[in-house]
Design a protein around this nucleic acid. Sequence first.
DNA 1: ATGAAAGCGCTAACAA
DNA 2: TTGTTAGCGCTTTCAT
Lengths: 370, 370
Amino acid sequence: MTTRRSKPTIYDIARLSGASPSTVSAALSGKGPSRRIAQGTVEEIQRIATDLGYSTNMQARGLRQARSHLVGMIIPEHDNRYFSTLSRSFEAEARARGLCPVIVSTLRDPAEEIRTVETLISYQVDFVLVAGASDPEAISRLCDAARKPHVFVDLPGWGRPSVVTDNHLGAVRLTEAVLDAMPATDDPLRGRPYLVGGVPKDYATARRIEGFRASVTARLGRCDDDQIIACGYAPGPAREAVMALCGRLGGLPAGLFVNSLTAFEGVLGHFVQLPPDAFAQTAIGCYDYDPFAAYLQFPVYMVRQNSDRLIETAFGLIESGRREATLVEIPPDLVPPRTIFRNMAQAPKGARGEVPTGTPATGTPATGAP
Amino acid sequence: MTTRRSKPTIYDIARLSGASPSTVSAALSGKGPSRRIAQGTVEEIQRIATDLGYSTNMQARGLRQARSHLVGMIIPEHDNRYFSTLSRSFEAEARARGLCPVIVSTLRDPAEEIRTVETLISYQVDFVLVAGASDPEAISRLCDAARKPHVFVDLPGWGRPSVVTDNHLGAVRLTEAVLDAMPATDDPLRGRPYLVGGVPKDYATARRIEGFRASVTARLGRCDDDQIIACGYAPGPAREAVMALCGRLGGLPAGLFVNSLTAFEGVLGHFVQLPPDAFAQTAIGCYDYDPFAAYLQFPVYMVRQNSDRLIETAFGLIESGRREATLVEIPPDLVPPRTIFRNMAQAPKGARGEVPTGTPATGTPATGAP
DNA sequence: ATGAAAGCGCTAACAA
DNA sequence: TTGTTAGCGCTTTCAT
């Protein structure tokens, strides 16, 4: 094959095959049968195309068809195991449909969110999934103006098709696990569980707080406002918040519900300062799952959202063409700790007694021990 | 603003403003000055555009300009802290240039790599960054045929512009940290460090093995082949490999160099089966960094690659127009453990004596302790 | 300082 | 079974 000076087009193939451009186009996009092109012609055209290293110019096709076969998703950040898992699911689902996934993060910046959605629209993406948006309504306005189908994931849009985790259920399960694991204390302040992290105006956080409150109230009779410390998602403030809390209580609380992985990173930033036995009297849970976080020194209960189902459902909503208010809730899983505390026989003083059972935390089931 | 039946184009704006489409085009793409359009005209056009909610159709622009303003990057997987950090850097760099980032993962499947590159090319991406490719030469052939500038990141391409971490240096540093932390043992087999994970034919793994061997040989006089267990990147095989190793040695080795985060996930899958004091006599290091992995029960030394510099440099190479063989190596950082073992005063029996210093492992510096 | 016209590569109607 | 034609929305000469 000689080096061409520019990319081959269907006109090159038309010339070489003696067929017309439209025949080439049809043959190359699998429309041979419906256009009833002769088998031989199709094969000849394909052969030449392969020879030439031809590939369809998707911009031209997209311009003509008024769509792009691109599908967009916006997420707050890439380097977060929850969102990167959503990305994985989104890619799989897009590919299964022959679409090209475009995943862009917004760093939780509302202005960046808007700009990103505008960009995706100007590339004529076929539709967009919006995960963890901070201003859903602004996004919906934009998409509506451009007639872009869109579905909210993780955080619901107002009166829009949305698919979210059953945050209430997840929070209840996590809170109950923490309550079960909490040691009894006489100290009235340290004896209560606390929730740290999240943005109260976010639907997800609000629902989790409700679940937390409900569980705590059911178990302990009450849940006070100072048990809720919604200091945002970022690690820094979460670290400060936990530090302040520990200062206030004179030590770690008996129970801690951390509301996101990023907040948990911050919490660990404080924990690293504490002596090892500080954790013996504390039960810890984290909403969202990260395999490494599941292996920390102290047992951590985690909530794993069902990424595949969230995304599948979102694609389903898009394809159903729904535009009315719809809120689908997907139940998450509670993942018990997978720490070395599992083997109780050799557990050091200070380790607590639960032997977690339940499903393994990663795909690789733990079999056989020495 | 009334609801339009389809997206407004420059022709709508032309009609409304009385200007011609070409004037509108120029005014809207900042070419007012060079085309010397009257200030007033430009402003009027912009006003109407805003009114209409106009946004450029990038497919049409791209078709005309024979480029897309899209830039592609392929990575092996999204849900891996190393690659997701590369994604973050890539996005930042793309945005700084007014380009739209398209990041697609290939799940380490060579066929998927090829398909993905073909897809990116058919969307006329301006250039592509290739991270962690398993078949760089095939990718280069494709890109060359399409005259697509491309740079390899993380794993070099053969005779192509590439920017990689200084794997040798990183491995030497990590190995030395492990060697320093290794307890002395009489057992000749357990007393040696082992390297687990990676693909020997990968350049990165090969260089790391070289570094490992060099350090081990310098310190211990020799390094045998059975100390290198390159069982791939996936968690499952890594878990099996470590399990087998422990079986062979009758316990954990004194030193363990894990060659990737995914392999480390597998290693932990085995560790979870072991009694807590099993780790007292082992020094552990992991190539690549994950904040949660940095907080595990036992101290873990980690190598953090400089994502921002890798990506910046890659963009630089693209922009310089280089096509010849170039290999830029970026030195990585050694991140000391940030475990609760830091506070030595209260460290339990079995904890080792180093108080790690050096740079904090996350962006949030650890200040003030209770 | 601005307009007219051509054309990027493709597909969809309509002819034949 | 295939070819002809028009046009998607934009940018870019070239004219004025």
